[in-house]
Design a protein around this nucleic acid. Structure first.
Lengths: 252, 252
DNA sequence: CGGAATAGGACCAAACTTAGATCATGCGCT
DNA sequence: AGCGCATGATCTAAGTTTGGTCCTATTCCG
């Protein structure tokens, strides 16, 4: 909770030191104005100084705190509102609309298993398409290896989940698209923290593990055969299948 | 020039300190001149001492700080402006137009514009599908508002890019899926750092901006009409269209 | 000498800031 | 429900800052 009295005007931005040894040093007052105030508030929000949904001081109070006019404050707040970092409600106040991605655990806690599947349903079909088009022989080898381990390994839910994550991540790697891989790693991270884990044992019976393995096998065959639409169809069905069972488990 | 008047005869190696209480302090080498000042500022910018978009001190302040006339400062700034390192706006100030590569995230540097489009092509169609299914009336209002601003606003590449990002992020919000929103924010962040920015002006001609606006309009109409497949088709074409132009620009 | 760079102004128009007043809305209290 | 108060939204008028432009004098250097 940032109190009005202690709004900090950090001078850090003003010190500029050239790397050269000739001793030039400029210390300048940060240029104050709506842009500067906007930057200050943005940083505070992004750093998590304000919690999501927390109310900011009123405009008239901010104006006094920053020693600026209300118009200037409103310009800064308006900018932040456009950036969708703030929400303003007449009669109520100005509220933070940004959840600090503290550990990525936050986002995991807010995400239900079904929502996770929805996101995977968005990403993975096209991801598989890219993988089919761009996979190298080495990618295929690694996929085959993972698949062999998956089928040869134990059939408990824990081990299967791990293999499953690895398998899909290998597909992400096979896209040869660094952003795609990064994105899927993020999703996988959420997956690890998701409440999914708590219902895993209920959903992942031995029979279903076998079914999933079959689907993985089919997916791999399609990728190796460079069958784009076949692979896409398999992964889509794979995820719909998983979602259906999740909804079933929800209902149960 | 009152304080520096004594450096007429160049001191061999000594530095002269000109201190002022009103905000600027400079310890400067007596070797001045527009070229030297220009080099100093260029180095500061390239080193990332000023963030992208940050406001430089006003010309009159710089003149005082460097102990030079405004004419000289303007010569230096003019050079940097020609180098596209600065942007100047009457009534506002002089702003840095260079994104230091140091503060860019690894992933953003490794990602080409085409790869970015590929990822968006993976995420956005299903994202739109979810948005159509889950958007609240309030979401639609906000989309309409953004759209109106986009069409009423100026048609330069910079403004359009900003509105475009906001528009797609609003769609992400409309999915009511926190993970989806988080994911899209990550993508948007990469988008800001991508080399896309460097070819933006080349790709985003006035006519194409108008075309994109039309597509946005059509997309919004489909979402409002809850036309799932129509909306998905529009966004898919929208992205394929963008990718085609990107590849064209690459070839050119 | 003559040209180039710099210094030091004056003035302009655009953009921003200030300081108000007034309005509309939402919240809490009675 | 009604009332009072706090809050954001909007508008106005005047003042301030800022880059853009033009001018003249001075300094430096070949």
């Amino acid at each position: 909770m940032a109190n009005i009295g202690e709004i900090e005007t950090k001078p850090a931005k003003g010190t500029i030191e050239t790397g050269r040894g000739d001793g030039l040093l400029i210390i300048s007052d940060p240029v104050r104005g709506s842009a500067w105030i906007c930057a200050q508030l943005r940083q505070a929000i992004l750093e998590g100084a304000y919690a999501h949904g927390e109310k900011l001081p009123a405009e008239r109070q901010l104006a006094q705190a920053y020693g600026a006019s209300r118009t200037t404050i409103r310009a800064a707040l308006g900018q932040l509102e456009q950036e969708r970092l703030l929400t303003r409600r007449v009669g109520s106040g100005t509220f933070v609309n940004f959840r600090a991605p503290s550990d990525a655990e936050d986002i995991a806690e807010q995400t239900s298993p079904v929502e996770l599947i929805e996101v995977r349903l968005a990403v993975e079909p096209h991801m598989v398409r890219l993988a089919v088009l761009n996979a190298t022989a080495r990618d295929l080898d690694r996929l085959a290896e993972a698949l062999a381990k998956m089928q040869g390994g134990s059939a408990d839910a824990e081990a299967f989940t791990e293999f499953d994550e690895q398998f899909h991540q290998l597909i992400a790697e096979a896209t040869r698209n660094p952003l795609m891989l990064w994105l899927y790693r993020q999703i996988n991270q959420v997956r690890g923290h998701s409440q999914w884990n708590e219902m895993k044992d209920k959903v992942l019976t031995g029979q279903r593990i076998a079914e999933y393995n079959e689907q993985h096998r089919a997916l791999f065959d399609a990728i190796r055969a460079r069958d784009v639409e076949g692979a896409v169809a398999i992964v889509t069905n794979h995820l719909y299948y998983a979602r259906r069972q999740l909804l079933g488990a929800d209902a149960a």
